[in-house]
Every structure is written in C-alpha cells, then in structure tokens.
C-alpha cells in the first residue's frame, strides 16, 4: 500500500513539474505541436519522393513512430528526471534520503512525463486517421500500449543507471540510444534496407518484434518478418517487456549502490 502511495505521489509530482510551467492550454498546445510537425515532415518527404502514391508507407511509418513514442517518452523522462533533479532542482538528495526506495520514486516521477508519450502516440494515430489511414484497432492494441509503457520504464531504468554517473552526457546518452534504437527497430523503414551487419543486429533486437506486434494490432500488414504469426508476436513482446523491465530494475539497483559508494549521487555539473 505504501509503495502504491509513494508511486502515486511521485507520479503526481513528476506530472506537476513537467506540466505546470505554463497555462494548461499552452502546455496542451505544446504537446500537440511536435507530433503535428513530425507527421508533416514525414508527409513532405514522401510527397517529395512519390507524391500521394505512397500513402500506405506514410501511414505505416506513422504507426511505428506513434508506438515508439510511448517507449521513448517514458525512458527519456526517466533519464531527464535524474539529471534535472540533481543539477537544477537540487532535489535528488532530499528525494533519495526520504523513506521508500529510490527506484519507486524515480519510476513514479518519470511516469508523470511518460503519460505524455502515450498522449503523443494517440495523437499521431488520430492525425493519421484524419489523413485517411485505414487502421483497424484490435483489442490487442491496448495490450501493446501497456507493454510499450513497461518496456519504456525498463529501458529508461537501464539508461538511468548510466545517467547516475553522468552530467550533460546523460542527454546525449538518451538521445543517441533512442535514435540508434529507432534505426534498428523498423520504426520508419524495413530493416532489410540497413547494411548487412546492422540487419543482423536489427533482427535479434527484441524491440523490432514489439513494434511489429503493435503495428499488427492496428491492422497493418507486415512489410517484413511475415513468417512470424501475430499470436507468436504477442508472446515475444511480453517476453521482451518482462526481460527489459527485469534487466532495468537489476541494473538500476546495482548502479544505485555503486553511485552511493563513489559519491556520484551528489556530483553536480553546471556547464
């Protein structure tokens, strides 16, 4: 019960810090502008290349990006939470020494930011509908949303483990890793286009199957890994999520111990 309470309060705190810098309608507009322009960029790129002849590819790209948003939003939130708390708000220490585990508080805080990832994701899908996408949402879609959220937390914890020891590098770490992951997870193009060595990495990358499963839950036909059935993808994705969150928690707990030993928690950078 106490854990749930702490998670909840951390979540509310995270949400408030994230959202209360402006009037609610400004914040809301802020959340909409990035996805709108992101979608517009993809559209213009495809329009420049093929006119309106490749709209299927466009909607396929949007679906991948929408789902990936949940994962990237949550994990990014986690890394920035630690960075901001330590360097700018100077709240990392009071949060750390307060009752309850650091892990719960960090998860709660970053979920406050992560929910906007879900919002952005749904908004991109909504835009796709408006532009004529023919998605047929299956019940498994919500299962995938949950898995993306869990995977985002797990992946965020892995990255946050490193960010405990870093200053500004944490920002580079998250952006770099997310960009690399996006490239090898079939988010915007089929992995077969990658150089051979990257293709090998892409196909052993579990996130590729998670994205593909998510796309199929929107009723989209597969451009690749057609041989794997949607049912099998459901299990693969669950496994990916559970594995990521387990590795995430383990890595974070170990890193926290090391960080406490070598004083990294209190180290600040202000360049």
């Amino acid at each position: 019960m106490a854990i749930i309470k702490r998670l909840y309060y951390s979540f509310v705190l995270g949400w408030k810090i994230w959202s209360e810098w402006a009037q609610w309608w400004i914040f809301f507009g802020y959340l909409l502008i990035r996805p709108i322009f992101g979608v517009a960029i993809f559209y213009m790129v495809i329009y420049f290349a093929q006119g309106n002849k490749a709209m299927n590819l466009f909607f396929w790209i949007l679906a991948g990006n929408a789902l990936f948003q949940i994962l990237s939003g949550t994990s990014t939130g986690m890394v920035w939470t630690i960075f901001d708390d330590r360097n700018f708000y100077e709240t990392l220490i009071p949060i750390y020494i307060s009752p309850g585990s650091f892990l719960e508080k960090i998860i709660g805080r970053s979920l406050g930011v992560g929910v906007t990832g879900i919002f952005t994701s749904f908004f991109i899908l909504f835009l796709a509908f408006l532009l004529g996408a023919n998605y047929s949402i299956k019940p498994s879609f919500f299962y995938y949303v949950l898995l993306f959220l869990l995977t985002g937390i797990g992946f965020g914890l892995i990255l946050a483990s490193f960010s405990l020891f870093m200053g500004e590098g944490a920002g580079y770490l998250i952006e770099g890793t997310i960009s690399a992951l996006q490239l090898i997870s079939g988010v915007s193009f089929t992995p077969q286009l990658l150089p051979t060595f990257l293709q090998k990495i892409a196909f052993i990358n579990p996130f590729l199957y998670l994205i593909e499963g998510g796309r199929r839950s929107l009723g989209l036909s597969s451009f690749f890994i057609k041989e794997i059935s949607s049912e099998r993808l459901v299990y693969y994705s669950l496994l990916t999520s559970l594995l990521t969150i387990t590795i995430g928690i383990a890595t974070f707990l170990i890193s926290e111990k090391i960080a406490r030993r070598n004083g990294a928690l209190t180290r600040k950078t202000n360049y």
């Binding site: 495809i46 290349a49 580079y172 770490l173 770099g176 960009s179 490239l183 915007s188 286009l193």
Partner: peptide
C-alpha cells in the same frame, strides 16, 4: 560531443535516407 554530437544527428537523419532508399 565526439561520439554523440556527430553520431547522433547522423543517426537521426539516416532514417530519412533509408526512407528515400525504400522509395
């Protein structure tokens, strides 16, 4: 900046190169 400021934007823009490749 060496690993991240150079590789990171390159990774970001690579997506669009691959989209052009796919088209």
């Amino acid at each position: 900046w060496i690993p991240f400021d150079v590789l990171l934007p390159l990774l970001g823009v690579s997506t669009f190169i691959f989209i052009y490749k796919s088209l």
